[in-house]
Write a protein that binds this DNA or RNA. Sequence first.
DNA 1: CGGTACCTTGAGGTTACTCAAATCCAGTGG
DNA 2: CCACTGGATTTGAGTAACCTCAAGGTACCG
Lengths: 253, 253
Amino acid sequence: MADDQPLREVGHLETRCEDCSFYTLCFAQDLSEEERKQLNLLLRRRQPVERNEHLFHGGQSLKSVTVIRSGSVKAYQVSQEGDEIVSGFYLPGEIIGLDALASGAHPGSAMALEDSRTCEIPLKDFVRMLQDSPRLNSVILNLLSEEMAETRELLLIVGRLDARTRVALFLLSMSRRLARRSQDPDQFRLTMDRRDIANYLGLTIETVSRTLSAMQRENVIEVRGKLVHILDRERLNEQAGQGIREERQRAAG
Amino acid sequence: MADDQPLREVGHLETRCEDCSFYTLCFAQDLSEEERKQLNLLLRRRQPVERNEHLFHGGQSLKSVTVIRSGSVKAYQVSQEGDEIVSGFYLPGEIIGLDALASGAHPGSAMALEDSRTCEIPLKDFVRMLQDSPRLNSVILNLLSEEMAETRELLLIVGRLDARTRVALFLLSMSRRLARRSQDPDQFRLTMDRRDIANYLGLTIETVSRTLSAMQRENVIEVRGKLVHILDRERLNEQAGQGIREERQRAAG
DNA sequence: CGGTACCTTGAGGTTACTCAAATCCAGTGG
DNA sequence: CCACTGGATTTGAGTAACCTCAAGGTACCG
């Protein structure tokens, strides 16, 4: 299908400063001119990391708070049994490492899915700013609670939804987050492989693959390897919406 | 089995102040004498809540931070589809409402599973204390991150483990938390019904029931309705430990 | 051009779900 | 104290969804 208009390669993502979470947050949440200036001063562009290189390992102490500038990153933990558990993906403009703020150590590891660049604020500076600025404090609390909410949502997804729904939600999430950073929301490249997707969604590779194929047969999406084209967002939304196994025992509420 | 020593009813749980999270935290985390005194002053014992009564509803603004003094509470959210999603249980001495600190509104609802009593600190006072005391601040951040960690763990449980393992983990968690509050860790009463357990674990009532029955047949536990007796903690631990579906596709790490 | 890793597809098995019925239990009223 | 009743729990039989194992295809890289 659509051989006249095949999926075209989408370039490596690079976030403009205006699209970065630091930027957006700080300017949206009415920090003072002074606070902004300082934040910008502290921001360091770090050496690019290569594909499969780690940004940090689980258990390491938190050295800096990081924004993905380009590329993408997966966060994962290793269970007692030694299994890798993918807990999330970070796209350009998103902040990584906040969940370590409280304890001071990273609960999990982060690995680049492709060659990536980041901006960082050394932890010391960041903490100092936190102490000086109640505003920034509340900004961070908010970010944390947002991440908490996302984890909660994932909880809902992973445990209770059928494969079709999980995959639909995943695609929509990616689409939404890419759109936020000035990307085409209907055509994008998944930077993670099927294994990571499967792991993240609590499915097997085969099930993810079959589900994507099925969606393609039904003309909801077009898939070619990592390239995804959303053809019928309407139906994708439907499939994402209704997945809860048709009424588990719901209580009175 | 064990008809000579049947499960005996366990009395209504009441936490001594020494077992309460507020108490423990504040005194463990070296707050100043002054700070402690103030915290105690602010603590209010609230009117008891009856079984099935709500402590608060989702979306309501956070009015106070609450410790369960006696009884137990379930936290749940309502999904878009109108299904109830049980996100956790709170036992005597545990703090409820922290996850609303950031946004100021409760993300979900809380309902008493039995007649219960609570202690509360009005939000205003609590926030004032937070501003005055960097120590308390970090204590709270820690609690939050702890809750985050718990949610993450639940994430792991709910999506990826088989029924047997989920139930085993649930029983052990209950046991551990009860033991912390001076209860017999091997003999206790579940205050929630099978539906809540099933919902919490992402299973159906029938599966929970069957699993408990199977564990009983194998002499790992003894169950009679809500009463649980752990007979073989060793094996229960084993069953909790190995559940991950025997090696999902693990990546290189 | 061959090799390797990734992805897709197929066949069969297992787990947990669904539907249905029996049993247990707590609370109520006689 | 006991029968009654409605809800909770257990148990059983059949089914659907997803996993496992296995083979074949595809793309990328040297």
